[in-house]
Simulated assay, not measured.
Amino acid sequence: MAPTLPQRRLVASYAVILVFAALFLAPLALALTTSLKSPEEITRVLSLPLSLHVQNYGVAFAEMGRSFLNSLLITAPAVVLSILIGSIAGYPLAMTRGRGGKIAYFILLSGMLVPFQIVQIPLFFMIHAIGLYDTIPGMWLVHTAYAVPFCTFFMRNFFSSVPRSMYEAARIDGCTVTGYFWRLLMPASASGLAALAIIQSRAIWNDLLFAMTLTSSDSARPATVAIAGFTSGTQVEYGPLMAATIVSTLPVMLAYLAFQKSFVRGLLGGSGK
């Protein structure tokens, strides 16, 4: 029996999805196989390793040292602080209907248009002057400040998707404006918060420019700076470099896999609430 038109369309859709999945997974698979190759096998890019050269992971962990822990200590607080401030700022902007609220909203959004390279040198001197250069709290401050415009933009739009009738019902029941935010709006926005947390975690975890500018010692440098150290002007240690890259991607990948449903609902504006 010949397949019907809907069945053929379904098969074609799955085929397209599989092709795109293979394209996205190919770099990760290539990095994984390279991380398990000996130096003699590195030039055979598309071949599988003849034996598992796990020593690359030992070298990667030895070179990275404390930097992996530093990335965790930088990313987690910076994500929490930036989302918290962005949510508090986005709440009144979502509730305001007048022209003043829109003007304040667009002024705040202008912070998203400023490239880091423009403020790199003044930021270096500022952080150095307040005594936070080469410290983890200094990285919290910088990442939080730079992420607030985007977090405010994201949460303002998400809060706007919550029916206003919920706010009016809460006010009738005697709930204060602050109580509505903490007791009702934030729990109802869990999917948006999860989506924003994953986006911010990826951005902060993968940051290199802030890290190279504002850290200089093993006590504060994150994993991205340690990974960059595997390359030099004369030599690139491809095996340990790929091993360190694989290790550094695991936390963000696991976070996404754990919260992927909330992530998708959050990007859709909470349509699954």
Rank of each mutant, 00 (worst) to 15 (best):
M1E: 15
L10Q: 11
S13N: 11
Y14M: 15
I17W: 08
L23F: 13
L25S: 08
L30C: 09
A31P: 03
S35I: 04
T43H: 14
L46G: 08
P49T: 12
L50P: 00
S51W: 08
F61L: 14
E63K: 14
M64H: 03
G65T: 12
N70T: 05
N70I: 02
S71K: 05
S71T: 10
L73R: 06
A76P: 06
V79P: 02
V79Q: 02
L84N: 02
I85V: 13
S87R: 05
A94F: 05
R99I: 11
A104E: 06
S110Q: 06
S110A: 14
G111I: 05
M112Q: 09
L113R: 04
I121N: 07
P122F: 10
L123C: 07
L123I: 06
F125K: 07
G131W: 08
G131K: 05
Y133G: 04
D134K: 02
T135H: 06
I136G: 03
P137I: 15
P137A: 13
Y146E: 11
A147V: 08
T152E: 07
M155A: 09
N157Y: 02
F158Q: 03
F159P: 01
S160N: 06
S161N: 11
R164A: 10
M166P: 04
Y167T: 10
E168S: 08
A170M: 01
G174N: 08
T176A: 08
G179N: 00
R183V: 10
L185R: 04
A188C: 13
A188D: 04
A190N: 01
A194I: 04
A195C: 10
Q200V: 07
A203Q: 05
L208K: 05
L209P: 02
M212T: 15
S216V: 08
D218Y: 11
S219D: 15
S219K: 15
T224H: 09
I227N: 01
A228F: 13
G229V: 04
F230Q: 01
T231M: 12
V236T: 15
G239I: 04
P240H: 00
M242E: 05
T245K: 04
I246A: 13
I246H: 07
V247W: 03
T249S: 15
T249Q: 10
V252M: 14
M253S: 14
Y256G: 11
L257M: 09
F259E: 01
S262H: 12
V264C: 00
G266E: 01
G272C: 09
K273M: 12
